[in-house]
Amino acid sequence: MAVSMIQLIGFMLSGLGLFLISAATAMDMWSLQDRSFTVVTNIYTYSGLWNLCVGTSYGTTQCRPYFTILGLPALLQAVRALMIVGIILGAIGVLIAIFALSA
């Protein structure tokens, strides 16, 4: 009974981890730059793995996706690749864990 409970808790934690890594990959606030003390009308700019967003002084936010992979910095390309590999390996791990659970 205790072994199956530990297996169930481990399976639920792995599912939660897969959800959280997927959410972190989709987030846009990986890098935040505050420009509120400059003369420019931008208050802040933030960028993620997929978009570059600018928040204006009027409270609006405009996002522009990265259209090319080759023009991005090497660090951003590496983080993108590792996050996608992490999601794929996590999904494979969850699938294996489903079949490994004892009844």
Score class of each variant (00 low, 15 high):
1 M>C: 11
3 V>T: 14
3 V>K: 05
6 I>H: 14
13 L>G: 01
15 G>Q: 14
15 G>T: 07
16 L>A: 15
18 L>D: 08
19 F>N: 07
21 I>L: 12
21 I>W: 01
21 I>Q: 00
22 S>A: 08
22 S>W: 09
22 S>D: 06
24 A>G: 11
24 A>V: 08
25 T>W: 13
25 T>I: 00
25 T>D: 15
26 A>Q: 04
26 A>V: 13
27 M>I: 11
28 D>S: 07
29 M>F: 04
29 M>E: 12
29 M>Y: 08
30 W>Y: 04
32 L>N: 00
33 Q>L: 06
33 Q>P: 03
34 D>R: 14
35 R>V: 02
37 F>H: 09
38 T>D: 10
38 T>C: 11
39 V>N: 12
39 V>D: 14
39 V>Y: 02
40 V>S: 12
40 V>P: 00
40 V>F: 10
40 V>H: 01
42 N>H: 03
44 Y>T: 10
44 Y>D: 07
45 T>K: 10
46 Y>Q: 07
46 Y>E: 10
47 S>L: 04
50 W>P: 02
51 N>P: 11
51 N>S: 01
53 C>S: 03
53 C>F: 05
54 V>I: 07
54 V>L: 00
54 V>R: 08
54 V>P: 02
56 T>G: 02
56 T>L: 10
57 S>V: 04
57 S>I: 02
57 S>F: 10
59 G>K: 06
60 T>C: 10
61 T>G: 03
62 Q>P: 01
62 Q>I: 11
62 Q>M: 09
64 R>C: 04
64 R>F: 08
64 R>N: 07
65 P>H: 05
65 P>T: 14
66 Y>D: 06
67 F>V: 13
67 F>S: 15
68 T>Y: 04
69 I>V: 14
70 L>Y: 12
70 L>F: 13
71 G>E: 15
72 L>C: 11
73 P>T: 01
73 P>G: 00
76 L>I: 05
77 Q>M: 11
77 Q>R: 03
77 Q>C: 06
80 R>I: 12
81 A>W: 12
82 L>A: 13
83 M>N: 09
86 G>A: 15
87 I>E: 08
87 I>A: 08
87 I>Y: 01
87 I>L: 12
88 I>P: 03
89 L>F: 00
92 I>P: 02
92 I>L: 15
92 I>G: 04
94 V>W: 02
94 V>D: 08
94 V>M: 10
95 L>R: 12
96 I>L: 14
97 A>I: 02
98 I>T: 09
98 I>N: 00
99 F>G: 06
101 L>R: 14
101 L>M: 08
103 A>L: 06
103 A>K: 15
103 A>N: 14
